[in-house]
Amino acid sequence: MASQGTKRSYEQMETDGERQNATEIRASVGKMIDGIGRFYIQMCTELKLSDYEGRLIQNSLTIERMVLSAFDERRNKYLEEHPSAGKDPKKTGGPIYKRVDRKWMRELVLYDKEEIRRIWRQANNGDDATAGLTHMMIWHSNLNDTTYQRTRALVRTGMDPRMCSLMQGSTLPRRSGAAGAAVKGVGTMVMELIRMIKRGINDRNFWRGENGRKTRSAYERMCNILKGKFQTAAQRAMMDQVRESRNPGNAEIEDLIFLARSALILRGSVAHKSCLPACVYGPAVASGYDFEKEGYSLVGIDPFKLLQNSQVYSLIRPNENPAHKSQLVWMACNSAAFEDLRVLSFIRGTKVSPRGKLSTRGVQIASNENMDAMESSTLELRSRYWAIRTRSGGNTNQQRASAGQISVQPAFSVQRNLPFDKPTIMAAFTGNTEGRTSDMRAEIIRMMEGAKPEEMSFQGRGVFELSDERAANPIVPSFDMSNEGSYFFGDNAEEYDN
């Protein structure tokens, strides 16, 4: 993207840094990872977990959730003011799984939030270390993106479920800051804005008074975040219109849905970061690795190297396929839920299948599930090659597409044709070009129609051997075009429920 120079890199967003050079960025990201790792080690000690239990991804998720809940100030305040039966607002906890007599047992633990905050700050040299908290939120978000298709949420806001490739980060909490905003897809931002506008339509006082002023500035800020994701002048001009509207209503909703559809071809720039579970960072720190000293990046080879040398386990339900569970977590670790499966298959070195073909449910185990038949197995999170994460949407291309997802959002900077089903997408653009945004709409449609099938995206960008740390010898991959490109292809993934 041309304006790259004016933006802070995501590592800076990730670490609240002012302008830093590459070495400083690597050190501050490393410091953040160190903090998460030290916190995780301490929690495993508190909970008396064995090494194996500490490497269980379900335990990692519970521990991450506990610290996120302990620092969720708004919710904590709300819980104190609106006490609900049987919930102690000062405590947080969740299921911890232990191996007892050759069987997995679930144990519900409860801790004072104050105590968890103390352990977290102690692991982070006394700081609140917001960057580390956001990092864990993005890992949870990436896992949700890989596990669930947001059909219901899309339909509720009037969008087409086939636009799911635009929904990265749709389950990120509001408090995820600049680093969170960077990884949100165009569809996620559109959905947040539509929800806001709908509230304004239904509630006369939404934009009024002292609160209304705050609401208005939040609305304009979200519009600017979305505008910054678009790469064409016409899309940005249309966002200006939406932002400046005196009284946002149905016309703005129409414009936003139009823009979301246009992003299936004229893709937005959305950041991709490899955020790993805390149970990967903990053992690495415990083994003596100093992330701050060595430096770390979320968008280069580092996460690949770390996963190459990590042992992570997962509980497996009786009829689940461990290899499929591994694929789910591998995609989440690489922030690749909406990437082209052919690119992923090449990088991973084994075939990556669409969601609907995987015999696996989510990673988390519900409290009512029976533990008797639970097994555990090693997650295979290694890769054959590594590639640089991208934040450009890439230019655009036609490809055989599917009944489910009709476009992709690249996660890796790797040369390819970008699949999208042009006739299906263009069919949504018939007729409606009147109104105050008509010239911009016409211009956007013209650009979409001009998108050429034979153009290559990320020209000359390749993948790298894991021994090639400096990215000196790019390998331009070859793809098996007979395979499906979309992950949520004609899909039956479970729906995400809060």
Rank of each mutant, 00 (worst) to 15 (best):
S3R: 00
T6L: 11
Y10F: 01
M13T: 12
R19P: 12
V29W: 06
G30Q: 09
D34A: 00
I36H: 10
G37T: 12
Y40T: 01
C44Q: 09
T45R: 00
L47H: 14
L49I: 01
Y52Q: 12
G54S: 15
G54Q: 00
L56H: 00
S60G: 14
L61Y: 00
L61W: 05
E64I: 00
V67W: 10
V67P: 13
D72Q: 03
K77M: 09
E80N: 04
H82A: 00
P83W: 07
S84P: 15
A85I: 15
G86F: 02
G86N: 09
K87C: 04
P95E: 01
Y97C: 09
K98Y: 14
I116D: 08
I116S: 03
R118P: 06
W120E: 11
I138T: 06
W139Y: 04
H140W: 11
S141C: 14
D145T: 05
R152F: 08
R152I: 06
A153F: 12
G158D: 13
R162H: 07
M163L: 01
S170F: 05
S176Q: 11
G177L: 08
G177Q: 09
A182H: 14
T188V: 09
M191G: 07
M196A: 00
K198I: 08
N211Y: 06
N211H: 09
R216K: 02
R216V: 06
S217F: 04
Y219W: 02
L226W: 11
K227E: 14
K229W: 11
F230K: 08
A233I: 03
Q235S: 11
R236N: 15
D240I: 12
D240S: 09
Q241N: 11
S245K: 04
I253H: 03
S262C: 03
L264A: 05
I265T: 07
C279V: 08
V280W: 12
Y281Q: 09
P283G: 00
P283F: 00
A286W: 09
S287Y: 10
G288T: 10
Y289K: 08
G300L: 09
P303K: 09
F304G: 02
Y313T: 14
S314T: 12
I316Y: 10
N319V: 00
A323K: 14
V329E: 12
W330D: 02
M331Y: 05
A336D: 05
A337W: 06
A337G: 02
R342Y: 06
L344C: 13
I347D: 07
P354D: 07
R355N: 06
G356K: 06
S359N: 01
G362C: 11
Q364K: 03
I365Y: 12
A366G: 00
N368Y: 15
M371L: 02
M371V: 14
M374I: 05
S377F: 12
S377L: 12
Y385R: 00
R389N: 11
R389S: 13
N395L: 07
Q398M: 05
Q398G: 01
Q405W: 10
Q405G: 10
P410A: 09
P410K: 10
F412W: 12
V414K: 06
Q415H: 01
Q415G: 01
F420S: 00
D421G: 14
D421L: 15
K422A: 00
T424R: 00
A427C: 04
F429H: 06
S438F: 14
R441C: 09
I444V: 01
I445E: 05
E449L: 02
A451I: 15
K452G: 15
P453Y: 06
E454A: 15
S457L: 00
V463K: 13
F464L: 06
L466V: 05
L466W: 04
N473Q: 05
I475L: 00
V476I: 12
P477V: 11
P477I: 11
S478A: 02
S478N: 11
N483C: 05
N483E: 12
F488Q: 11
A493Q: 13
E494I: 05
E495V: 12
E495W: 01
